[in-house]
């Protein structure tokens, strides 16, 4: 059994989503191939990185300029090429925007069913055909049975630890690039706005704001965020009011995050919002209504008005721990 993991990257670095996907892959097999598709210029650095990710037994690389556009048809065509060279038991990608389009497209081309957004690979002894994934905006789990082979699975990266490093690099195999097939062309890229220079999906601490925060309190939130070195996210309602940009929207229709600490301020906790933040390691809720659903998922809660609590947090955090003690 060999698992093929598709490497996601930004042109210079393999993404942490891929490291987490490799952790998931390791639960299926010891034999893990990582497929790196990039331009000629990008490939050497990327393959070198992929080779030292713990658990990787072989790096496969095809280089062509058209890969750097990330078009679905081109990436899928090359995966299919690789599948002709080697028999795989599983094909894995993370369930990023990229994975959400490339994996089902590949499934369509191969006439195979596939599983989206798998969260755990141990399945209570049900067997290797069963996969668990969240449904209904992550309010329930479904166990899906898939008998197709190979198994095409996208992995919710935030639920897996990132694979570490290995001392002995895996061998790198260069394969010829399949010709460009996509009729689509990429005409522009607009980088996401980053709040305080911290990408919300990478920030260790994220502060989420909801309806309980108005324009008046926003400077306070920004100050708290800069002290904590946190990114700021928001619910749909806040984005629609124009308080923060839509790239900061958290939840089912926005981003899914899994920081070490999520501080929800003035957020009631609608399921659509919780879907995007549930994987956070620790959730702190600050809300003046104890009945708000956010308290049911929070590890710690403070019942109180944001206007009062945020300044208290700021002044307490501005003191050093020694002073507090």
């Amino acid at each position: 059994m060999t698992v093929l993991v598709f490497a996601e990257h930004d042109g210079t670095k393999i993404k942490s989503k891929t490291m987490a996907t490799i952790t998931a892959a390791a639960s299926f097999s010891d034999e893990i191939h990582v497929l790196v598709l990039a331009s000629e210029r990008q490939s050497p650095a990327l393959t070198e990185q992929a080779a030292v990710i713990a658990g990787v037994s072989q790096v496969i690389c095809a280089s062509a300029d058209h890969f750097s556009c990330g078009l679905t048809e081109d990436l899928a065509a090359q995966i299919i090429e690789q599948m002709k060279r080697h028999t795989y038991s599983h094909i894995l990608m993370s369930s990023s925007y990229l994975g959400k389009r490339v994996l089902p497209y590949l499934a369509g081309k191969l006439n195979l069913d596939c599983v989206s957004d798998c969260i755990v690979t141990e399945n209570d002894g049900l067997g290797s055909d069963f996969f668990v994934r969240p449904v209904y905006a992550s309010s329930l789990l479904v166990v899906e049975k898939i008998t197709a082979s190979p198994k095409l699975i996208s992995i919710r990266a935030s639920t897996f630890a990132r694979a570490g490093k290995q001392a002995i690099p895996a061998p790198i195999t260069i394969i010829p690039a399949a010709p460009k097939v996509s009729a689509v062309t990429r005409t522009a890229i607009n980088k996401a706005e980053e709040v305080f220079g911290i990408a919300i999906t990478r920030a260790k601490i994220v502060i989420g704001i909801g309806r309980g925060i108005t324009k008046e309190e926003l400077p306070l939130v920004e100050k708290l965020a800069s002290i904590l070195n946190a990114a700021i996210g928001a619910t749909r309602a806040v984005v629609e009011e124009g308080l923060v940009s839509s790239s900061a929207m958290l939840g089912q229709t926005g981003k899914t995050i899994a920081p070490d600490l999520y501080i929800a301020i003035g957020i009631s906790g609608a399921i659509q919002h919780l879907a995007g933040v549930k994987d956070s390691k620790v959730i702190v809720a600050i809300n003046d209504d104890l009945q708000a659903p956010i308290f049911q998922v929070a590890n710690y809660g403070i019942v109180g008005n944001a206007k009062v609590i945020i300044p208290q947090l700021i002044s307490a955090l501005e003191k050093t721990p020694e002073e507090v003690a």
Binding site: L112, D113, C114, V115, L126, F130, V132, P134, V135, S138, S139, L140, L141, V142, V143, E144, K145, I146, T147, A148, K278, I283, V284, A285, L290, F295, Q296, V297, A298, N299, Y300, G301, I302, V303, I309, Q312, L313, A316, V324
Partner: peptide, 25 residues
């Protein structure tokens, strides 16, 4: 070749603690 085998509740998060004030938090 794919079917729903079961539906499950989410594993419960550990019971949260309502703390009295900011220093405790």
């Amino acid at each position: 070749h794919i079917s729903v085998a079961q539906l499950r509740h989410l594993p419960m998060r550990p019971n949260g603690e309502i703390v009295a004030d900011v220093p405790t938090l």
